[in-house]
Design a protein around this nucleic acid. Structure first.
Length: 279
DNA sequence: CAAGAATCCTGTCAGC
DNA sequence: TGCTGACAGGATTCTT
């Protein structure tokens, strides 16, 4: 489920536990994720200090004292799980395990293996092919109505599909694209290039508010961003339209006044929207 | 070149 | 209870 807010919450959890610590042990349990983990990764991670973290879109970047950066993407089913002590066995799909000097263990668990991890030189971060093409950060200063409408101007597809394109804006996924469009009152089927002017302004504000609230929700519902189970970043969240087919959206009366949230399929993905409020 | 489909993989859940 | 099929929050690669 990881979209930008979940990735941000996972990153903060990693930061709280790992920043300034030394990775005393690293182990690759299974290298064949989306792409094979680089050879020698475990050795290069061992005995390095964690300097800091940042996030770019749905990628987590962990900077190391060795001059390397560990790049992580959680894919569809990736999770980071903290456990105490080296005795507990790796869970079934724990592909990468790090352990601090203090005995904290963090595992990268990803059953579907759509996630990725790479180890690159920190100086090469900005040229990495997976990061270089990303659009602006939706919570950053470069994400303005003008920039968004410029990016959408040449698009011949729906606004929903355009928002999922990480080159347009980095970090939205299927859920938050639906939620932000609902908040902006824009139909997911609207052609992307027609979102400009006032609508682009509303969409930028809606994306900002939707993501900011979700991050706050993750921060408040997890103590130090870590659940009792040791899992990071997966918090309860009440969606306004996502997964609510046939149910009234929060602003509509429901039947008979309104048929409720409609589910459609766009580019093979489920879209949820309120036909009455989104145009 | 752009847009949509197919694809990778496993877990979960609804329905029979 | 067990089986089957649909579906899942991503992003690349292939096809049109």
């Amino acid at each position: 489920m990881p979209e930008l807010p979940e990735v941000e919450t996972v990153m903060r959890g990693l930061q709280a536990r790992l920043e300034g610590r030394v990775i005393a042990r690293a182990q690759v349990n299974r290298p064949d994720l989306r792409w094979a983990l680089p050879p020698g990764m475990a050795e290069r991670l061992t005995d390095t200090r964690v300097l800091g973290f940042r996030r770019r879109g749905k990628y987590i970047l962990m900077r190391l004292g060795s001059g390397d950066t560990l790049l992580l993407h959680l894919g569809m089913s990736g999770r980071m799980v903290f456990t105490r002590g080296g005795s507990s066995p790796a869970s079934a799909h724990e592909h990468l395990t790090l352990e601090t000097e203090e005995g904290w263990r963090v595992g990268f668990v990803d059953p579907r293996r759509f996630g990725m991890a790479d180890l690159i030189a920190t100086s090469e971060e900005h040229v990495h092919p997976l990061l270089a093409g990303l659009g602006p950060e939706p919570l950053g200063p470069a994400f303005t109505p003008d920039r968004l409408s410029a990016a959408l101007a040449s698009k011949r597809t729906s606004i929903k599909a355009a928002l999922l394109d990480q080159r347009v804006v980095a970090g939205l996924g299927n859920i938050y694209a639906c939620e932000a469009l609902f908040r902006a009152g824009i139909s997911p089927k609207r052609l992307a290039h027609t979102v400009r002017g006032v609508r682009a302004g509303r969409l930028v504000s809606a994306i900002d508010a939707t993501l900011t609230e979700a991050i706050a929700s993750g921060g408040s519902s997890l103590r130090d961003y870590v659940q009792p189970s040791g899992e990071l970043g997966y918090f309860q969240h009440a969606w306004k339209v996502y997964g609510r087919e046939g149910l009234p959206c929060e602003l509509c009366p429901g039947p008979p006044g309104c048929a409720g949230v409609r589910r459609t399929v766009q580019s093979g993905r489920s879209t949820f929207h309120c036909p009455r409020l989104q145009r």
